[in-house]
């Protein structure tokens, strides 16, 4: 039996782990991976102590710091469910393992939102991608579509304009991203913007060969011949494990107060999975520290 289980290995979870270890709590960190969303971040210029650091490098430094401590870490396991009985939490992983603890910190972060259209799941990694900076360069001289209207979509468009033969920007809404980014891309000769268009289907046999879209205003269906589809429509919290256990808001974020407490005593949450505004690495790290210190207080009172 552990005193504390931390679910998630991003900035919030790893910072919580360091604080828990320094308080000499008997703690376990469970995570699908180390680094979470930071792994998908190219350069970071707003994490204190570094004027510029690559995401992968920052994560390596976090990992080194966590691994200094004699902490139990289970990697490559995700946590689909969590329950509580008589004040003891039970965390079950997708590998069939079960761990018990007196307190839990959920720091499971967010993941890219999917379109949920036919063909998307089947063609994932076969032309459907969620990280333009990762997979974009593979689509040189091909036609691609970027789906979304926010900053991440515009950044993907900017990246792809330099690489692809032609870029279609397909957005359900008018552009919501910053005008500085719009200005950067709008004059490109190899860009076609299709705003207020809904993606109906991604087609292709072994690989993506096109998408079917529909205009919201004219109701006309169009087919775009593309080899790549970059889905950049925001993020959703990894909070399914908390369903039915703890209160969440309408965006499925776990509701926490400024002490990182949820509505369940002993169950804390930190970082992007919570209602805390501003999804930033430095914020998540700070929240992880707070959650571990509050969990420590909670455990002290139980003793």
């Amino acid at each position: 039996m552990y005193e504390l289980i931390i679910i998630g290995g991003g900035p919030a979870g790893m910072t919580a782990a360091v604080y828990a270890a320094r308080k000499k709590l008997k703690a376990l960190l469970i995570s699908k991976d180390i680094g979470g969303q930071v792994n998908w971040t190219m350069g970071i210029e707003n994490y204190m102590g570094y004027q510029f650091i690559e995401g992968a490098e920052l994560i390596r430094k976090f990992e080194e710091q966590v691994k200094q401590f004699p902490l139990d870490i289970k990697l490559g396991e995700s946590v689909p469910s969590l329950s509580q009985k008589d004040g003891i939490f039970e965390v079950r992983t997708d590998k069939g393992e079960a761990y018990q603890s007196k307190a839990v910190i959920i720091a499971s972060g967010k993941r890219p939102r999917q379109l949920n259209v036919p063909g998307e799941e089947r063609l994932k990694g076969r032309g459907v991608a969620y990280c333009a900076s990762c997979d974009g360069p593979l689509f040189s001289d091909m036609k691609v579509a970027v789906i979304g209207g926010g900053n991440s979509a515009l950044e993907a468009v900017d990246d792809m304009l330099k690489i692809a033969e032609h870029v279609y920007l397909v957005s359900l809404t008018p552009i919501t991203g910053d005008s500085i980014l719009i200005d950067k891309v709008k004059a490109a000769s190899n860009l076609t913007m299709l705003l207020e268009h809904e993606v109906m289907e991604i087609t292709g046999d072994k690989f993506v060969d096109g998408i079917k879209i529909k205009g919201l205003n004219d109701k006309a269906e169009r087919t775009l011949q593309v080899s790549g589809v970059f889905v950049e429509i925001g993020l959703i919290p990894n909070s399914t494990l908390a369903e039915g256990v703890v209160a969440r808001n309408q965006y499925s974020e776990i509701v926490v107060n400024c002490d990182n407490e949820t509505n369940v005593p002993g169950l804390f949450a930190a970082g992007d999975v919570t209602t805390v505004p501003e999804k930033q690495i430095v914020v998540a790290a700070g929240e992880g520290a707070k959650a571990a210190l509050r969990a420590n207080h909670y455990l002290q009172r139980l003793r």
Binding site: T41, E54, G55, A56, R60, S133, D135
Partner: peptide
């Protein structure tokens, strides 16, 4: 790999 992909960097590291 590509030069821009973060997971490629992790792999090489």
């Amino acid at each position: 790999s590509t030069t821009t992909c973060p997971w490629c960097k992790r792999t090489k590291q």
